[in-house]
Simulated scan of single mutants.
Amino acid sequence: MTKRQMIYLACAAGLLATGLGAAPSADLTIVHRVTPGESIQEAVNAARPGDTVVLSPGTYRESVRITTSDVTLRGSGPGTVLVPGAASDSTCATAGHGICVTGTADSSVTGVTVRALTLRGFAKNGLWASRTDRLAVRGVTSEKNGQWGIALERSLRSALSHNVARDNGDAGLFVSNTIDEEAGALDTKGTAVHHNLLAGNRVGVTVRRLRNVSVDHNEATGNCSAVFLVGDETTPRAGALSVRHNYIHANNKYCAKTPRLPFLQGSGIVLTGVEKSVVTKNLVQDNVGASPLSGGIVLFKSFVGALNESNDIRDNVVLRNGTADLANRDTAGRDNTFRGNTCAVSEPAGLC
């Protein structure tokens, strides 16, 4: 008899004894508790929709894959730490990720929550999610991972909140349409990236080839670039993005050039190849560098030729950034507006 069956029968007996019902609920959910030395993956495999897997404080040397909808994986705070374990044949571990939340082309994984734990030192990504709907990642620290701290593709209505992403090889938070093929921008139907701390990464937040994403109330400091909104020549175009109420300061780390980008240093908010997006009420200061992408808020032509169009840059405080507080370096872009901003230096002059 399984643990679930024993609890189910115990509840049924209690109900019958008290006269509260003749039959137990079919919606009984279980809390699976795991301590260091035990397998998280075994508990996740046993979980059914509605169940919660709770991790005690301590270090767990494994990767975990979640493919069941409406499951919560909850640590006990930053002291619950996942690090790479011994060689494993699991697809998540083999790929170099800490936690994987993955659906299929035919069926998304919905309603998964990951919260209150630390992911450290994985070769690829701390948390990787693909083909999800309503994924919530909250209170997670993802640090010193080889590529991205927390990364999503092909996912809708995600919520990334109150996380710390630091010292990752590329973006602290990365949300994208897809990473393995050329495709038009995906409408996320309201993905929200808010109240996160992003420090010491190559890029704090990258939003790539998406529509309907909000980035708000985050703090980004010590990165090479704080926020990157990236589009390209495909359709639908990337856009309908919102960047509001963020505190972006001293993102002056130096990152060497790549085959796609020049070196990065001193970039606050960069828009490249996006449309109909709003950047408003952000505090952007002390981001200083000499890269073509350096500056407080920068519009830059996409490296594949896509233009910025109909973006609204307004009511921001943008000070002490170099080479400029506001920079429109996408001279062919159309209908981009700068209004109501507090700044000192702009390219071209007259944007402040």
Results as ranks from 00 to 15, higher is better:
D51S: 08
D51E: 07
T52C: 04
V53M: 07
V54I: 07
L55M: 08
L55A: 01
L55P: 11
G58Y: 12
Y60E: 03
Y60C: 05
R61Y: 12
V64D: 10
R65T: 11
R65V: 10
T67S: 10
T68N: 08
S69K: 05
S69P: 14
S69G: 13
D70N: 14
D70S: 12
D70C: 05
T72C: 04
T72W: 14
T72G: 04
L73N: 03
L73C: 04
R74Y: 06
G75I: 11
G75C: 05
S76K: 02
G77A: 00
T80A: 02
V81G: 00
V83Q: 05
V83I: 13
V83D: 00
V83L: 02
P84L: 05
P84E: 04
P84C: 03
G85L: 08
G85I: 09
G85K: 08
G85H: 04
A87I: 07
A87V: 14
A87R: 12
A87W: 13
S88H: 09
S88E: 01
S88V: 06
T91G: 02
C92S: 10
G96C: 03
G96P: 14
H97P: 14
H97V: 09
G98D: 05
I99Y: 06
I99H: 05
I99T: 06
C100K: 03
C100Y: 07
V101I: 15
V101A: 00
V101S: 01
V101Y: 06
T102K: 09
T104A: 06
T104I: 11
A105T: 09
D106G: 09
S108R: 14
S108F: 13
V109A: 01
T110P: 14
G111W: 15
G111V: 15
V112H: 09
R115P: 13
R115F: 05
R115W: 06
A116L: 07
L117T: 03
T118A: 00
L119A: 01
L119G: 01
F122Q: 06
A123S: 07
A123E: 06
K124W: 11
N125Y: 11
N125S: 14
N125T: 10
N125P: 15
G126E: 02
L127Y: 13
W128I: 07
S130Q: 12
S130T: 15
R131F: 10
T132Q: 02
D133C: 06
D133I: 13
D133L: 08
R134G: 00
R134Q: 05
L135H: 08
A136D: 06
A136E: 12
A136H: 13
V137N: 02
R138P: 08
R138W: 07
G139E: 03
V140S: 00
V140Q: 00
S142K: 04
S142D: 01
E143A: 10
E143W: 04
K144N: 06
N145G: 03
G146Y: 13
Q147S: 09
Q147G: 01
W148H: 15
W148F: 14
W148V: 02
G149W: 11
I150C: 01
I150D: 01
A151D: 04
L152M: 14
L152G: 04
E153C: 11
R154Y: 10
R154V: 13
S155L: 11
S155I: 15
L156R: 02
L156V: 05
R157K: 12
R157T: 03
S158T: 14
L160P: 15
S161D: 04
S161Y: 10
H162K: 08
V164E: 01
V164P: 07
